Structures are given as structure tokens and as C-alpha cells.
Computed example of a mutant assay.
Amino acid sequence: MSILITGATGTIGSLITARLAEAGAEVKALVRQAGKRDFPAGVTEVIADLTDVPSMRAALSSVRTLFLLNAVTPDEVTQALITLNLAREAGIERIVYLSVIHADKFTNVPHFTGKHTVERMIESHGVPATILRPAYFMQNELMVQQTLRDYGVYPMPIGSKGVSMIDARDIADVAVAELLRRDRAPTALDRVTLELVGPQALTGAAVAQAWSLALSREVAYGGDDVAAFEGQMASFGPSWLAYDMRLMMAGIQAFGMQAEDGTVERLQAILGRPLRTYDDFVREAAGQA
């Protein structure tokens, strides 16, 4: 039996797929098109679509463990619920689901509330799963590197409450640890929820200062104007996504993104090493650009 990875061509899914293969696991990577990405030796491509029930039934038919990651799309909830119901139908009792931190708090943000709906399904049906709730990804910052360099402005309106950004590589490593723990257990394990955060709570001003040091030039925080942020996002992508991101940023400004006391220590115990810091990430990103 094997571990099926959805979202296998994305940032998190590709990291998980590679690290599971390194660990000697039997890995299947779910893709919609064959050959879209080069996977490590031993990884099997499985062609299916999360909204195509026959293809998903076939994909799940010989799977022991499932990693479920849904992209932010208008039908995200439908994709997730169909996949989980089909997994239950196939008798899969080892699941890791990638949700989002404060999914129950950011109630007006579409993709947060969608993930909370999926969490409620997992809980109400007693699905044996690990729910991973990551905060804002450090790798999101790579999208604004050109603005940082060309204009000396950090444009993400994250406010002053504090965001405990986490490196995507740490998310992947925790996911791999949980997938292997569940896959290797003789029976289904109890449901677990893990908030995934980095070791620092960062404000917009603190982030700008980190980039100033890394780039050896002054970088200013662009401010808290979420309407302007939406307009900028809409110039690069669909308006529904831009508005969703605006609502998320407003929620971050209101609530921040920080986990409970003891979370960092718990994650570092799972990883067996310290979490990556934002300063280290920024220095690495600045050096590679």
C-alpha cells in the first residue's frame, strides 16, 4: 500500500513527495496531466482530478494513507469533501489534511471558512486524521521580491498584531513526519490538530527592517491599505481571489497569526531541530535573487 499526495506539483506537495521518497516510502503523486513535473525515482504518477469521481475512486483504490491539499479555488470545499468521502468509502484511515491557522476565527474569509468546513466534516465523521494549520508561508514573500528591490517597499499589509510566518520546508517536514507516523502505525490513530508557525511574530515594520538589512538598502513598510492591496492583486489574477486575499489581510491586521504558547517547542520536538527563522529565510532569498 502507498501514500497518495494531492497537490503534488505545488510548493508543499512537491517537497513532501520528494522527502517521502527519500525516506523509502511508496509514494503516488496525484496529477491532472502526466509529465507536468519531474518526480524522484520511485514515485508513481496517478492521473486524476479531485472533482472527477471515477478517477478519484481509482486513485484511492490501492492507497493506505492520504495527504490532502486543496488549492484556493472557488470549488475548494467540493474538492475536499468529495475526496474525503471517497477516502472513507475506500477504507482509508490514515489522513493528513492541510488547513490554515485560525480557520475558525477568520469567518468572513472564503478559503479560511472553506477549510474550517472540511475540519468540521473530519471531526463530525470521526475521520482518523492529522489537521495541519499553517500560518502565512515565508515563501509568499518571493512574489514581492521585485517590489522590494525596485521600489524599496514591503507591500503586504500584515499590520502590527504579529504574524508567525513559517517556512514551507518546515511545513513539509512536519507533514512528512505525520504521514509516516500514521502510515507505519498498526491501526488508525486518534485525530490530532497541529498549528504550524515560525519562531517569531513579525509586524509589517519588522519585516521591512529584515529586508533592509538583507538588501543593504532602506525598505519601508507599505502600510495597512487593504483596498489598494486588492487592486494590485486584481491586476495579476481573478477578482474573487484578490478580494479573498484582501479579507485575509484585514483579518491578519485584526487578529494577527500566532499560535498558543508551547507550539514552537512542540513543532521543534517533532522536527528534532529548530524551526527556520524569518531572518535566515530573507538572507537566503536575497542571496539567491
Rank of each mutant, 00 (worst) to 15 (best):
158 I>T: 07
158 I>Q: 00
193 T>C: 04
140 N>F: 01
200 Q>G: 07
151 Y>W: 08
222 G>L: 03
160 S>D: 11
138 M>V: 03
140 N>V: 01
251 G>L: 11
207 V>G: 01
251 G>R: 04
247 L>R: 12
204 G>F: 04
178 E>P: 11
195 E>T: 13
240 W>G: 10
213 L>A: 14
244 D>R: 10
176 V>R: 10
148 L>Y: 02
213 L>D: 15
244 D>A: 12
184 R>G: 14
162 G>A: 05
192 V>R: 14
192 V>C: 11
201 A>Q: 07
229 F>W: 13
142 L>R: 13
173 D>R: 15
193 T>D: 09
160 S>V: 03
144 V>M: 00
155 P>L: 08
178 E>W: 09
178 E>G: 04
199 P>E: 00
205 A>N: 11
152 G>H: 05
216 S>L: 08
256 G>N: 12
253 Q>H: 06
195 E>N: 14
167 D>Y: 15
234 A>L: 05
245 M>S: 06
220 A>G: 05
202 L>C: 01
167 D>N: 14
209 Q>C: 05
246 R>L: 08
202 L>W: 02
225 D>A: 09
210 A>V: 05
234 A>C: 09
193 T>E: 11
175 A>D: 08
231 G>I: 02
195 E>G: 13
226 V>Y: 10
207 V>N: 10
172 A>V: 07
251 G>W: 01
164 S>M: 11
152 G>M: 00
254 A>T: 15
174 V>A: 01
143 M>V: 12
166 I>D: 01
150 D>G: 00
187 T>W: 02
162 G>Y: 03
230 E>L: 02
158 I>N: 01
149 R>T: 05
216 S>Q: 15
189 L>Y: 03
165 M>S: 11
253 Q>R: 08
144 V>Q: 06
146 Q>D: 14
204 G>E: 02
243 Y>C: 12
212 S>D: 12
165 M>W: 12
250 A>R: 14
243 Y>P: 02
179 L>W: 09
208 A>G: 07
204 G>N: 02
184 R>N: 15
240 W>I: 00
163 V>E: 00
166 I>C: 06
150 D>E: 09
191 R>L: 12
245 M>C: 07
167 D>R: 14
136 Y>A: 05
186 P>M: 04
154 Y>R: 07
152 G>W: 00
251 G>P: 06
232 Q>T: 13
